[in-house]
Write a protein that binds this DNA or RNA. Structure first.
Length: 893
DNA sequence: GGAACTACGT
């Protein structure tokens, strides 16, 4: 590398720090030895009868050190001192070195005591003392000796700086470096390497540049080590262009140079460049080592591309590089963060099978996977592994166990871990408090919160956010608000964006959408800027047909605040627009995305499925398959429903078998219920039942519900009873199922329901938005002032709804049949919207709490044809889109 | 005595 090329990088350095001459060369120094020769009488098993030569004593002392008999050696020293003789500095140095080699800090301290008595200590002995403390991990003691030294040479500074470096005190390394320069001692190459490492660690670009210039001035730039280290500092500080300038000038790049570049790109999130260099390195004949694979894999995982990361891990095995604990841990963490928890735990098992030992971080990652999956059994296994590995004293492990037990619903175990911990930090307290809230013990959480204030770890803003979230979860909205307000007044702990987000998502989860929107509005007038989490929290409150305008408003807001460019936000927008009945907007967001991930595709796919656009869904699925995307559970759940909707039973079946065989995905309940829907919708009820009976896992309510729906449509009342009974066992309090079951019994001529167990008939209600106001209609509610007007309008329309072919047939409905006094709520909504718009409605968006009945469905079809309007109505079953006399559900719901 | 170096939790 030529010096003039390296100096392409512009550097400004303070003049006083530029040394005017080149680096000094260090010679060994000899000592002034003046130890008298006497006879030393000694302890039991050591006796030196006659030692006329201090060198002989040194030899014998050395031998004692080698044997590990340091105390004997000290005894000899003491006897020398007793006899008033002087110990040679080299003797002390040898003994101190032995303490370093044996990692024997106690003996080192004994020696320090004796050296301390010497009036004028040799700087070399003092330096050795500094290194002794440093290497035994006693940074403070090392610093004390260092600070008291009057004469410091390069060795002294190197020992102290080396100590800080080993202790990961990077800032101190740099500070000491500047002090040393001002003190007038010039660094050598070894010391500069230490300081450069520190610069990289604490991203100190300025010092890095300064050293770069020093190196050029002193003609050291030909050192391979220095060159690589300087390059690494530029790379770590994000100055990839500077790093590249150095890199490009190297004739023969070694693996270290490549690693520095790859790491730099990874740390700056430029994974494409990192991958490019990784590939180029192999082309130049440098085989990537374990670290290179690991860096790339970790980067992909951090960016959420665990699918690419796992491919890389499999590939490295083919290259003969075995994944180590870093590789596995990074993969487990990547899959956990991506939500593929069972996959993460599969990897943990595979890691054990491969004979790789876990460490504390692996255990912490695995515990958080168990927590996310709420798998207590797996969590217990992880806990026992931690016990076997003797890691339970570790704060990190303790905290992750508290979190795991809390999330798996075993707060008692979490409390026991908490009690046993010798050391607790903020995480311990915050986790256990969160755990009590989750378990529903609000009072206990509050009690711990009070105790925490007296503890060594007083609450921080996260604690308060945990409290706000907890109060919201337990319905104590006022307490949450009080706490939130107190954060402003108090002043000690300031609210942060997460405090606002906790409140907003709490209200959304409690169904208080308007309050959530109000808080969101207030936030916009506060000094805290909303972030993407805010958008993600608030959007679900608008993902319904009566809030369709709100999605647009929030989308605009996100664009203005530059938050819409985040993929996770865009993905949720695709979903929210679809759910609010604006599929065109979903498409606009989706096709406007420059980089789409599998979630983007899944969101668009489920949007199409929701709107009954099965052809578009199938087309999109084809495109997805061609893109080489890693299709996941969500993809298959949607595509099965698309096949179901399109009546493509065989295609659906073949995709279902692909899920397990080709994609190695364990089907979840969503997939099973979609299959039941697929079979049931096409009338294959017996096959659907057989499918349920052959399921490898216990079917849940959604599976039975799919069968019950099929029975309802195909009027198989006998099978409806079987499905309904099973459903009622799973959800005893569900009065809708109870009502359906009672209907099925009566249609079969049976009255098997227990006497006195009257079924509450469900009350239908719906909501419609007109001119920014949401209007509610409830069956049998006489309070509506326009009721007569609505009824007479409906009467006129009813004459024209000619398709009511099922009117007199036997069927099961969620809602009681209409009579003159109980017109179904959606009909009232239709009438209201038509009258309100003078019979020229364009788009009606209605939300209904129960499944529509056949009659209302026919009415909606008629209205859409007769008035040329579109009706979006989401009931408890699906989203119906009525247009031109047809419904997107194709009359199956 | 020396260079690159990756994984974790409220």
């Amino acid at each position: 590398m030529s010096p003039n090329l390296i100096s392409n990088v512009h550097i400004i350095i303070p003049c006083k720090l530029i040394p005017p001459f080149s680096f000094p060369f260090h010679n060994a120094t000899h000592f002034d030895c003046n130890v008298s020769t006497r006879v030393y009488a000694i302890s039991n098993n050591v006796s030196i009868t006659k030692a006329s030569n201090p060198k002989l004593i040194d030899t014998q002392l050395n031998q004692l050190c080698i044997d590990g008999s340091l105390s004997e050696a000290v005894a000899i020293l003491d006897s020398i001192a007793e006899q008033g003789c002087k110990v040679r500095p080299i003797t002390y140095m040898n003994l101190l070195q032995s303490c370093i080699d044996k990692d024997c800090i106690l003996m080192g301290k004994e020696l320090h005591d004796r050296i301390g008595l010497v009036r004028k200590v040799n700087p070399f002995v003092e330096t050795k003392l500094v290194s002794m403390y440093a290497k035994c991990g006693c940074l403070d003691e090392a610093r004390n000796v260092f600070d008291e030294m009057r004469v410091r040479n390069l060795f002294t500074w190197s020992a102290m700086i080396g100590a800080c470096s080993r202790n990961n005190s990077w800032g101190e390394v740099v500070e000491l470096f500047y002090e040393m320069m001002e003190y007038g001692v010039l660094p050598d190459e070894f010391l500069l390497l230490k300081v450069l490492r520190a610069c990289g660690k604490c991203r100190d670009l300025e010092t890095g540049k300064l050293i770069h210039s020093l190196v050029i001035r002193c003609g050291l730039c030909y050192s391979k080590h220095l060159r690589n280290s300087i390059m690494a500092v530029y790379a770590k500080c994000g100055e990839m262009d500077c790093a590249k300038k150095i890199f490009d000038c190297i004739d023969k790049r070694d693996s270290i140079a490549w690693t520095a570049m790859i790491t730099g790109f990874c740390q700056n999130g430029e994974i494409e460049q990192a991958q490019k260099y990784f590939d180029a390195m192999q082309k130049e004949g440098v085989q990537p080592g374990l670290v290179n694979w690991n860096i790339l894999i970790a980067c992909y995982n951090q960016l959420g591309h665990c699918d690419i990361a796992i491919d890389l891990m499999r590939k490295m095995e083919c290259f003969g590089v075995a994944p180590d604990v870093y590789t596995w841990t990074s993969m487990i963490s990547g899959f956990t963060q991506k939500g593929s928890i069972s996959h993460a735990l599969d990897l943990l098992r595979e890691m054990f099978l491969a004979g790789v030992e876990a460490n504390s971080i692996t255990i912490a990652c695995a515990a958080s996977a168990c927590a996310a999956l709420k798998s207590l059994s797996m969590g217990l296994e992880i806990h026992s592994i931690a016990v076997k590995m003797n890691l339970v004293g570790n704060v990190l492990i303790g905290n992750s166990m508290i979190d795991m037990y809390s999330k798996c619903g075993n707060i008692g175990a979490a409390q026991r871990i908490f009690d046993m911990m010798l050391q607790r930090d903020l995480y311990s307290w915050n986790s256990i408090i969160g755990g009590y809230f989750q378990a529903g013990f609000c009072g206990k959480a509050h009690e711990l919160f009070m105790k925490m204030q007296e503890s060594d770890s007083p609450p921080n803003v996260v604690t308060w956010n945990v409290m706000i979230t907890g109060y919201m979860q337990s319905g104590a909205e006022d307490q949450a608000l009080d706490l939130f307000k107190s954060l402003e007044k108090d002043g000690k702990i300031k609210r942060n964006v997460a405090s606002w987000n906790s409140l907003i998502s709490g209200f959304v989860q409690n169904g208080q959408k308007d309050k959530a929107l109000q808080i969101f509005r207030n936030m916009q007038f506060s000094d805290i800027a909303p972030n993407s989490v805010t958008i993600l929290s608030i959007l679900p409150s608008c993902a319904n047909l009566v809030a369709s305008k709100k999605v647009k408003e929030i989308h605009c807001f996100a664009v203005r605040r530059n938050l819409a460019s985040e993929l996770i936000v865009s993905n949720l927008l695709i979903d929210s627009y679809a759910k609010s009945g604006n599929l065109m907007y979903s498409r606009n967001v989706f096709y406007g995305l420059s980089g789409k991930d599998v979630v983007s595709w899944n969101s668009m796919l489920s949007g199409y499925v929701l709107h009954g656009c099965s052809e578009s869904a199938l087309g999109l699925f084809n495109q997805m398959s061609k893109q080489g995307l890693r299709l996941n559970r969500g993809t298959f759940a949607s595509i099965l429903l698309a096949y179901c909707h399109a009546g493509m039973v065989d295609e659906g079946k073949s995709v279902f078998s692909c899920i397990t065989k080709e994609y190695l995905i364990r089907p979840s309940m969503e997939h099973y219920s979609a299959m039941v829907c697929l079979l049931g919708r096409s009338g294959k009820l017996a096959e659907a039942l057989e499918f349920i009976q052959n399921m490898p896992v216990e079917p849940n309510s959604s599976v039975w519900n799919a069968l019950l729906t099929a029975c309802r449509i195909h009027r198989n009342f006998g099978l409806a009873i079987i499905a309904g009974k099973r459903l009622l066992e799973l959800e005893p309090g569900n009065n809708i199922t109870g009502y359906l079951l009672s209907q099925a019994y009566s249609l079969c001529g049976k009255f098997e329901l227990e006497e006195g167990k009257a079924v509450n008939k469900p009350v239908g209600q719906c909501w419609i938005e007109r001119n920014n106001t949401v209007h509610t209609f409830i069956v049998g509610d006489r309070s509506n002032p326009y009721l007569d007007k609505l009824h007479s309008w409906l009467k006129r329309v009813a004459v024209n709804v000619k398709t009511r072919i099922f009117d007199n047939e036997l069927c099961i409905e969620e809602e009681e049949k209409e009579n003159t006094s109980s017109v179904h709520s959606e009909k009232l909504a239709f009438a209201f919207a038509l009258i309100d718009s003078h019979n020229t409605p364009q788009i009606l968006r209605i939300v209904k709490n129960l499944k529509m009945c056949r009659d209302c469905h026919d009415t909606a079809k008629y209205i859409s044809l007769a008035y040329g309007c579109e009706i979006y109505l989401s009931d408890s079953s699906c989203l119906h889109h009525f247009k031109g006399g047809r419904c997107s559900c194709r009359d199956y719901w």
